[in-house]
């Protein structure tokens, strides 16, 4: 936390206030024009430098990723869960005879970093039968709507173990 405080109090002009954002913007631009012509790389670099400079005030903090290894292991788990989520939801929709048991559950949060909470909420919305609905007062709890639940506590445990624990390692150190 102290490192972040120092970084945000440091003032003065920087050509690359967000180097990662610059790289991402160049890649997005190259994908958008669907070419790796040198002209496009130069134009992309132009955008990659200009956009972070113009939007500097919207980015008070850097998201900090401390454990890249955990992130690399987390992404395949996440993509696998998205595919499974789709199959499960499709099955629940098609299976007309089944009675759904939709439930609201409250997930108590251990993570405090805003970027980590945002990522967790999005991951919950994209994975099996759950949509994150509201962040509770003081960012301590997350209200989640789930499509078909047997045991609410088991769902909460699963979210905490499978998603929150790795995100805590990735974003908070």
């Amino acid at each position: 936390m102290s490192g972040r405080a120092e970084a945000s109090t440091k003032s003065g002009f920087k050509l690359f206030p967000h180097p990662v954002l610059t790289v991402v913007l160049v890649i997005v631009w190259l994908l958008l024009v669907n070419s790796i012509h040198p002209r496009m790389i130069v134009l992309g670099l132009g955008f990659g430098i200009a956009i972070p400079l113009f939007t500097r005030r919207f980015w008070p903090d850097h998201p900090r990723i401390c454990r890249v290894g955990v992130l690399v292991r987390f992404v395949p788990v996440f993509i696998w869960d998205v595919v499974i989520a789709n199959l499960q939801v499709a099955w629940l929709i098609v299976n007309f005879r089944r009675e759904l048991r939709p439930t609201w559950v409250v997930v108590p949060l251990d993570i405090t970093d805003p970027y980590a909470i945002t990522t967790l909420a999005n991951v919950i919305s994209l994975t099996p039968g759950t949509v994150s609905s509201e962040l509770g007062p003081g960012r301590r709890t997350l209200l989640v709507h789930s499509m078909d639940v047997d045991d609410p506590q088991a769902l909460v445990d699963r979210i905490k173990r499978r998603y929150e624990a790795p995100l805590k390692e990735i974003f908070e150190c």
Partner: peptide, 10 residues
């Protein structure tokens, strides 16, 4: 949908 088990200010 079933409501959450406890009240957490939501």
């Amino acid at each position: 949908s079933r409501a959450p088990a406890e009240d957490h200010g939501h």
